[in-house]
């Protein structure tokens, strides 16, 4: 593997790890705050799946980097501008409807994306994706009925779903934008062409909401910047909480 590929691969893996760890932390914020006990447990379990996913990507990234850094250094020692997650993952949990619409959006995305990534020419990445896609398929089985239930529940739950859609639609486009290093990795058969997934995603999500008579608002605004380290105002606050212990007591272990 030449240096350029190594560098591309490192950025690619850290990006995927960042997506997972940031969403995981957001989901974990529901722990002890869920609408009822089973939901609380479910959201925490999904958070755990994402933590596992982040670890697998980070562990591979530090091996590629070949220095003495560990997965914990990547998660706990980088600042907001060094995080390269796509923005949809970092938005605050807001209310339960918002959390479930975001989850539905990313579940639909990851089911397709990870299925494609399972065929990566890089065996390690393929095996991580094969594992993760099974989990995302299960997550989708759970987020879908919630979308129906909230959309068709009360006027209030429907209103909240619609509000969540207006906000989240601004952040969907970024899921389908390719970074330069990703484009090079696609040519080598390692990464997946995200742009090829957009129309399938649009059709699926529109058809699903149409069943409950809800139109997806089209967003003219496509907010982006996560992969370059440009974030919403929310990520810094989240990291200050997530990284607190390691910042206060560097190298601390359980």
């Amino acid at each position: 593997m030449n240096d350029q590929t190594k560098q591309n691969l490192y950025r690619f893996l850290v990006g995927l790890g960042d997506d997972a760890v940031v969403l995981s932390h957001r989901l974990s914020e529901w722990c002890s705050n869920g609408p009822y006990l089973e939901e609380d447990i479910a959201l925490s379990n999904i958070a755990l799946d994402y933590i596992g996913r982040a670890r697998l990507f980070y562990q591979y990234a530090v091996e590629i980097e070949g220095k003495e850094n560990t997965e914990d250094d990547i998660a706990y020692s980088r600042t907001e501008r060094e995080y390269t997650n796509l923005l949809i993952h970092e938005l605050p949990i807001n209310d339960f409807a918002f959390t479930m619409v975001r989850q539905f959006f990313v579940d639909v995305f990851y089911c397709e994306y990870l299925a494609k990534l399972s065929e990566s020419s890089d065996e390690r990445i393929a095996s991580i994706a094969q594992k993760a896609v099974k989990e995302s398929r299960y997550h989708l089985k759970r987020s879908e009925p919630w979308i129906t239930q909230l959309s068709e529940g009360t006027d209030e739950s429907r209103r909240r779903i619609k509000e969540a859609l207006i906000e989240l639609e601004n952040f969907v486009g970024e899921l389908f934008i390719m970074s330069d290093w990703e484009k090079e990795l696609v040519e080598q058969g390692i990464a997946v062409d995200r742009t090829s997934l957009q129309s399938g995603w649009d059709d699926y999500v529109q058809a699903y909401f149409a069943k409950s008579g809800i139109d997806i608002p089209s967003s003219k605004l496509q907010i982006r910047g996560g992969r370059e380290g440009i974030h919403t105002e929310h990520l810094g606050h989240m990291l200050s909480e997530m990284q607190y212990m390691q910042r206060a007591y560097p190298g601390m272990k359980w």
């Binding site: 379990n45 999904i46 089985k141 759970r142």
Partner: peptide, 8 residues
């Protein structure tokens, strides 16, 4: 009752 129980 719920898609997740005591463990994942």
């Amino acid at each position: 009752i719920s898609q997740f129980g005591s463990t994942a």
